[in-house]
């Protein structure tokens, strides 16, 4: 598959972010860009990255196979990742994963026959205060027990788009890959959507409600000067 002119232009823009002579730093975002175009890291995508950076396809492959988020097979429109690390597992995440696996008839990193949903179990997603969590195209759904997880997936199958707990309306797998390549989320108002959940604000709210603040804060406190440097 040939890459579009827009993708070539985006590749140039990605490379320009890094200091001169260090274009290889652009490889991770370029692989995200390839996934934005092809839905996974295709052989053509590997060749594209190699050509852009003047390195070999083997060098690109070595990197692409190292990272979990680079998919080696066609990935569904919806990537459903269920955290099954210890805390989420104990709080219900393992059961949620097993329920989805049974319902969808697919295992880890497998895609449904209609090509729409890819399932994976994920390691800690850094939202333990909302355990158990799952993500759809990396946006969080909090406190998802098995029944909640099934409901979310059924909505996706029905063509509805369930709203993540603390993030904007869902975007497609390819759209999110473009964001991962460092391009802004262009959907009007999307960045503003999503509010903090109770756990995030628990301590700050408790302090505010009880009038607790750190005393003695004076923003005009002078910065001490060392005479030798004055």
């Amino acid at each position: 598959m040939a890459f579009s002119e827009e993708t070539y232009n985006r590749a140039k823009e990605i490379i320009s972010r890094y200091p001169e002579g260090h274009s290889r730093s652009a490889l991770l975002p370029l692989l995200h860009l390839v996934q934005a175009e092809d839905g996974y890291v295709t052989p053509e995508g590997i060749a594209f990255c190699a050509e852009q950076l003047g390195i070999t396809k083997a060098q690109v492959n070595a990197v692409a196979t190292f990272y979990t988020m680079y998919k080696r097979r066609p990935t569904g429109e919806w990537l459903v990742s269920v955290c099954t690390n210890t805390m989420c597992d104990r709080m219900g995440g393992q059961k949620a994963y097993e329920a989805l696996s049974e319902y969808l008839g697919v295992g880890h990193e497998e895609t449904t026959a209609d090509g729409r949903i890819t399932l994976e179990h994920a390691e800690c997603l850094a939202a333990c205060d909302y355990a158990p969590v799952m993500t759809v195209n990396y946006d969080f759904f909090d406190g998802t027990q098995a029944t909640d997880a099934l409901q979310i997936v059924k909505q996706l199958q029905d063509g509805q788009t369930p709203v993540p707990s603390r993030a904007p309306r869902l975007c497609s797998f390819r759209e999110v890959q473009l964001q991962l390549a460092g391009f802004p989320d262009e959907r009007p108002g999307a960045v503003a959507e999503g509010v903090a959940g109770d756990p995030t604000l628990a301590g700050a709210r408790l302090a505010a409600d009880n009038g607790v603040a750190v005393p003695g804060f004076d923003p005009n406190t002078p910065i001490a000067r060392k005479e030798a440097t004055a």
Binding site: H32, A122, N137, Y138, D139, A167, Q179, D185, A190, V191
Partner: peptide
């Protein structure tokens, strides 16, 4: 990588 919402806000 998985922290897409934090990255959206950070990039903005």
């Amino acid at each position: 990588g998985e922290a897409v919402q934090a990255a959206r806000r950070l990039r903005a």
